[in-house]
Design a protein around this nucleic acid. Structure first.
Lengths: 155, 155
DNA sequence: AGATTATACTAAGGTAGGCTTAATATATGC
DNA sequence: GCATATATTAAGCCTACCTTAGTATAATCT
């Protein structure tokens, strides 16, 4: 059993996530995008499946429907998304991006890309690829997001 | 610019971190270890450098000294650590693990190992190695923890 | 038709993991 | 002496979720 320390897998990932978040927040703010990282994530998920139902979105994001509702409330109030009726199930609502929301995707992506570039500086491309492959596997293994059929990728 | 989506680097890492944390929490609870993941991390850092000063610990962990104080308060109250005077600087305190705290390291490590195994299932060993290498680089690149000279490794 | 389950939401409150400003007492270094 | 360092207290804030409880409405199953 190797020594428990800062480089232990779980702590390492947690560190990275925290640092990523800090950097992302900074870049997003610089870009003048008025969302939090988690909100950005919600937007990204919606962008991936525009018109998605709230419960499906929650499932995809691996969080409770109620938490999703909170995020959607904020995003809707900010004019970034709209929620409209589902013609096939009157209980449900489908979430779509507004033009305002859609316009935010590029700066968000750019901010993310910038952070990613910083993070990956000096890492061999093959290691980067391996990292991404492993990361996808990790996420799947740890259970969660049932993705729609991969429709082209990543990054 | 690739499409923004759930597999975007930053969101992917965030997802993994969140899932790791959930799994870790569950395993820790199963093991009957009364700490939160963040507390476990603090313990791990202390274990790495027993007798470390609080400010150094904060720096190592990439967080503010005051936040560290909060964590240490909890851990000390739980009898897992002690804070004693630094013979070389009377302003400072050195943090050490108690026997109680030390005894928690193994179950914590085991819990972490279990989660890691789950996460890495089916990932080629070479990809695992690459992942770890890249992860270390990522953390360094994103800035933070000045590590003591690597004194043997990891995982 | 009635029972059960599903969808979105409101209300309320909580945990965890930090952060910040402000200030204090004491100690160290120049 | 003055500036900086160390740990701490006080207070309040933000983000990212979670949970129980309940409601109105709708869909599905028996």
């Amino acid at each position: 059993m190797p020594p428990l320390g800062p480089d232990t897998f779980g702590f390492l990932i947690t560190d990275i996530a925290r640092l990523l978040r800090r950097n992302f927040e900074r870049e997003i703010e610089r870009a003048g995008v008025p969302v939090t990282p988690a909100e950005a994530r919600v937007l990204a998920h919606i962008a991936r499946c525009d018109g998605i139902r709230q419960t499906v979105l929650a499932d995809r994001m691996g969080m409770s429907p109620m938490s999703v509702t909170s995020f959607l409330d904020s995003l809707e109030a900010a004019g970034m998304i709209t929620r409209g009726p589902d013609p096939q199930d009157r209980r449900a609502k489908r979430v779509t991006l507004t033009d305002t929301g859609t316009a935010l995707l590029t700066p968000i992506a750019q901010a993310g890309q910038k952070v990613r570039a910083t993070a990956m500086a000096g890492v061999a491309p093959s290691d980067q690829d391996a990292f991404h492959r492993a990361a996808l596997a990790l996420r799947d293994n740890l259970g969660s997001t049932s993705q729609p059929p991969a429709e082209g990728s990543s990054k």
